[in-house]
Simulated scan of single mutants.
Amino acid sequence: MVSFPGDTLISSAMDVISQSLTVPVLIILLIIVVASLFLLGEIIAEYFKNKKVKVGDIYDLIFKISNATSIEHLQVIVSQSDIPDLQKRILTKISDTHSMKKSSREAAARRLVEMEEERIDKNLNKTDIITRIGPTLGLMGTLIPMGPGLAALGAGDINTLATSLTLAFNTTIVGIGSGALCYVLGKIRKSWYDRYLADLDALSDAVLDYMD
């Protein structure tokens, strides 16, 4: 194979670039591990904090809202219900728009629900990001040490090879493990939020229908 003068320079530059990424990749993987554990604790706390509302309870609440005698009575019904506090605040804000025109009420209600959807999307993005970049960084952390490791093998330096392989395996485990954990957490959280938003949509429609 013909070797060009620039090949060695390019190869050296690529080697420097790849090896310079070692520390940043390790630091980001460490941050990902800490973030994954934090998200795990956050979801456990969320599970115990927000009790699950049964479908029958939502149906009963809609029935009570439709039979409220006044806006004040409606707000009392909402405040005394078993739905999450965030839903109570949103429904109360929607009921406060009773003096507006119908189109304005609907626009305000739609925006309040959209803001809640945006908040939920931000929470879901946390796990989605780690799910995507965790395994990628783990793969980078696997391949980067392999260059020096293979070079050490060619030179008969077993100690350097062992160190490189240990680092490669550790980063693979950390990256894939964090990604898998956040994938599961994201799926669990999404199922909660889908139910939460479905309930919120139904209740907000009930409040708007009452004010029509």
Rank of each mutant, 00 (worst) to 15 (best):
M115Q: 10
I10G: 07
L161D: 08
S103G: 03
R111V: 02
S95A: 15
T136A: 06
S81N: 00
I17M: 04
I133G: 00
D199Y: 09
N170E: 09
V53I: 07
E116L: 05
L139F: 07
S3G: 09
M211T: 08
I71P: 01
S3V: 13
I188E: 11
D194Q: 06
F169W: 09
M211V: 05
L143G: 00
K122E: 13
L203I: 07
D157A: 08
G6T: 08
P24V: 12
I62E: 05
D15T: 15
A151I: 00
I94W: 02
S204D: 01
L197I: 02
S95K: 05
M211C: 11
R189N: 10
S103R: 01
L74Q: 02
M115R: 05
I94G: 10
V23I: 15
L26G: 01
F63I: 04
D82Q: 04
L208H: 01
T160H: 09
Y59G: 08
T163G: 09
L112M: 10
I71M: 03
S178H: 11
G154A: 12
I130H: 10
G175C: 06
D57A: 15
G179F: 12
K122H: 12
L39H: 12
D121L: 12
P84R: 08
D85W: 03
T97F: 01
F48G: 12
V55S: 14
E46Y: 14
A13S: 14
Q75V: 10
S20M: 10
G138P: 12
D60R: 14
S191K: 06
G156T: 09
L26Q: 07
Q80R: 11
E106N: 04
G177A: 15
K187Y: 07
A13K: 09
T166A: 15
V23A: 07
G6V: 09
I43N: 13
M140E: 05
G147I: 01
M14Q: 05
L143T: 04
T97L: 03
P24H: 10
A155T: 08
A45I: 14
L74G: 01
D209Y: 08
R189S: 15
N123K: 15
G6P: 06
T69N: 15
K126I: 02
L143M: 07
P135N: 04
D209M: 10
L150M: 14
G179H: 14
T97Y: 03
L29G: 03
E46H: 12
G147N: 00
